[in-house]
Simulated scan of single mutants.
Amino acid sequence: MQTINIERLIKLDYRANESYKNLRTNIQLCGSDIKTIMFTSTTPGEGKSTVSFNLAVSLAEAGKKVIFIDADLRKSVLVGRYKINKSVKGLTHFLSGINKFEDVMYGTNVDNLNVVFSGPVPPNPTELLGNKVFKTLLKVLRDLYDYIIIDTPPIGSVIDSAIVAQECDGTVVVVGSNMVGYKYAQKAIEQLKKTNTTILGAVLNKVDVNDNKYYGKYYGKYYGRYSDAGEE
Results as ranks from 00 to 15, higher is better:
L55W: 04
K35F: 08
I4Y: 12
K194N: 10
V174R: 02
V164C: 06
I84Q: 03
L141H: 03
Y223H: 07
V140R: 14
L129Q: 02
R81N: 09
N85M: 03
K217F: 08
L91G: 09
R81E: 08
G63S: 06
M38K: 12
I149C: 05
S118C: 13
G97L: 02
G176D: 12
G156R: 00
A188K: 05
I149E: 08
S87Y: 10
D72I: 11
D111K: 15
Q28D: 05
V203W: 00
V115K: 07
I98P: 07
D211N: 14
P123G: 14
N85D: 06
L23I: 12
N124Y: 13
E7D: 13
F117I: 02
S118G: 15
G230F: 01
K100P: 00
K217A: 04
N178S: 13
N26C: 12
N22D: 11
D72H: 12
I149H: 02
L200H: 04
L200K: 00
N178T: 11
S32D: 13
T50W: 03
K139E: 13
G80L: 12
L9H: 07
L59N: 00
Y20R: 06
G45R: 06
K221Y: 03
V66S: 04
G63M: 01
I189D: 01
A188Q: 09
G80D: 15
T136H: 15
C168K: 03
G216I: 11
G170E: 01
H93T: 13
L138K: 04
K187C: 09
G63D: 00
S157P: 10
V115G: 05
L95M: 07
L73A: 02
N17Y: 02
E46F: 06
G31H: 00
Y219Q: 13
Y215I: 15
E102T: 08
V175M: 13
C30K: 08
T136F: 15
D13K: 08
I67T: 03
E167K: 12
I149P: 05
A229G: 06
D169M: 11
V88C: 06
D13W: 03
S161P: 02
D103Q: 07
S19F: 10
E18Y: 05
T43A: 09
G201W: 10
Q2W: 01
N5T: 12
D160K: 06
E46L: 01
V174P: 07
K35P: 13
S58W: 05
V110A: 09
Y215E: 15
A185V: 03
K194S: 09
T25A: 02
G119M: 02
N17W: 01
P120T: 08
T126R: 08
T36N: 09
L12Y: 04
K35I: 11
I84G: 02
L59E: 03
G224N: 01
M105P: 02
Y145N: 02
A202P: 05
G224H: 05
E7I: 03
G119K: 01
M38T: 14
P154G: 09
R142E: 06
N85F: 06
Y145S: 06
E231S: 14
E231C: 12
N26R: 14
D208P: 12
G170L: 05
P125I: 00
L113Y: 00
I67R: 01
N114W: 04
A185F: 08
N124M: 07
